[in-house]
Nucleic acid binder design. Sequence first.
DNA 1: CCCGGAGATTTTAAGCATAAAATTTCCAGG
DNA 2: CCTGGAAATTTTATGCTTAAAATCTCCGGG
Lengths: 346, 346
Amino acid sequence: MSGKSSNAQRKASMTDVADLAGVSVMTVSNVINRPEVVSEATREKVHAAMLELRYRNNLVARSLRLAQPRQIGYVLPDRDPVGNQYMDVFLHDLAVACQGADRNLALITEQDTEALMTACENLYFGQSVAGFIISNVKSADPRPVELRKRGIPFAAYGRSGEAFATPWSWIEGDAALGIEMAVDHVADRGHRELAFVGANPASVTGVQREIGYREACLRRGLTGSVAPGRIVHCARDLETGVRVAPALLDTAMPPTAIICVSDPLAAGAIIALQSRGLVPGRDVAVTGYDDTPLTSFGTVGITSIRQASAAIAAELVRLVIEGRKSPEHLVLPPTLVVRSSTDPAA
Amino acid sequence: MSGKSSNAQRKASMTDVADLAGVSVMTVSNVINRPEVVSEATREKVHAAMLELRYRNNLVARSLRLAQPRQIGYVLPDRDPVGNQYMDVFLHDLAVACQGADRNLALITEQDTEALMTACENLYFGQSVAGFIISNVKSADPRPVELRKRGIPFAAYGRSGEAFATPWSWIEGDAALGIEMAVDHVADRGHRELAFVGANPASVTGVQREIGYREACLRRGLTGSVAPGRIVHCARDLETGVRVAPALLDTAMPPTAIICVSDPLAAGAIIALQSRGLVPGRDVAVTGYDDTPLTSFGTVGITSIRQASAAIAAELVRLVIEGRKSPEHLVLPPTLVVRSSTDPAA
DNA sequence: CCCGGAGATTTTAAGCATAAAATTTCCAGG
DNA sequence: CCTGGAAATTTTATGCTTAAAATCTCCGGG
């Protein structure tokens, strides 16, 4: 059984198995795909033969015969200049979801729209993939439109622009709800003076998050927390958090809870707190968003909103597999992960 | 040409093209694969027919006939708990490298070794992928051994353990050289008192980096910089950087340049500097590693070592495509990216 | 006017698997 | 002993492409 000799005979086909088992090729196929129509005795014979020959169903041949590609394409977004760790998590979940659906995830790199479309056409019309998943959908993103124009099935993570009822399927996390959960959480713990850091009216998600913040605050009667100075428009990176948090704390009525739209912002705020000798979670509560690895921040864990990315991935895969049906638009609720940045006991 | 009607007739095969062009199927195949053996007149006829029918070569059928999978598998590493942004960059480059080699990148998720091997066997012996690329190879990693045992082609990013001449191919960035470049860079700019943050003798790369640091310092005669207190063993995350940097600065002879083994560490150090009113690059130089998105840190850019990840990815793809030949072991040199954390003018 | 041979194109066969139709096997009931 | 019919298995046909061998076309030299 040296590596060399066993490699020599490479691959056994169904014919080989059938011959060895003394049955027809079709019986072997049935053993694999519809075992219930084969008698137990035959089934065992065939299984033994498959084992002996180390037979593996040729996925390419099967795919050709069935005319059903067992692959799903994912357009890998261009590296976020800020380094969005969440996409990492999502990619992982996407791969898992594909494996769960007995598919493979194939990556295509982002590029100019025309080149991307050519690549997608080759893959889809070349029967290589069943369809595509796209993420990081921007406002007025050309990709959904172009894909649809070409009749290529796809599902999007995030809607493009404000339109809800697009003629294609999309899924997104409930951004408003996520922020509401964070607000409710700190309010439940007695905080009355909140601030919202990272507002950005230019993005759909940004608008939704701000709405969630305002509504939750008003519902709770925290009118001071929606004052102009308490809603900070800024970038979402860590360094910005380090800069912005002190400015908030130096106001006449400083907030005791800071709701951030990203984990890096929250981490930055925590650094700023610590450098003033304040203890996050005890003196000032801080929350992040996306539950990235950054939430393990030394001795302090950052309370964060975890998107249902596994569920989102699974739904996207399902939508692509199901193919052309009436489009679905799903908004999935996130969950709150409580850590010491809002609760020293956690 | 409404979307609906054109979608109805789905896909045209070579037969359809041949019929329309009034030639045999084989001629169409030749036009695609060996145009030089077909007369120009025929070639044009066939091209016209292909265009009219929007013909796409069926990649699955081709793959079946040629028995050469056009896919390469990549074992997506488990999410680094610290959130390693570099893997993001690498994945990107890997996808690009595959596209350049006219292949597709298929993702498999990491899992326990047995399940992973089953998945790999199915994919490889099922003729779906030509081989695999694995990364984040740990010391005594079981994966290379198991893959080899099964006769599955693969190439590794990183060697496992200290052994150089493994019986499989691997590639890595020259970690020692990278740190040396950083040391030389700050030494060239007049710094005589350096510190090395993030030493970790438990990992192969960690050892190499420390060697690079010590050698470069000694070569330059910076003996004070290799004193025990100047080589800090610690984690590689940002929060650690925030904690460690002040400790270094509070010693009797504080360093004026801090060489970090990661960008998060460097970012943390910069935060610590700024909170003391020091200006990175002017008062104290700081370097990072991997040239991640974090190097754009607000107003200060972090000088960092960029691994030749595009070249590494391309080589890995080449090795998998070439398949079983004598194993190659490549150590590729990184490059230095100078920013304001070491040079205010940059 | 015939023939050789280069160049162009077609025929034959295969690669591996599966759906649908056809056939064989086997048993109970008449 | 024959027959209907369910269960098990095989036969036939097909998906799309490509390597290799066979055939055809055409032109110039003998």
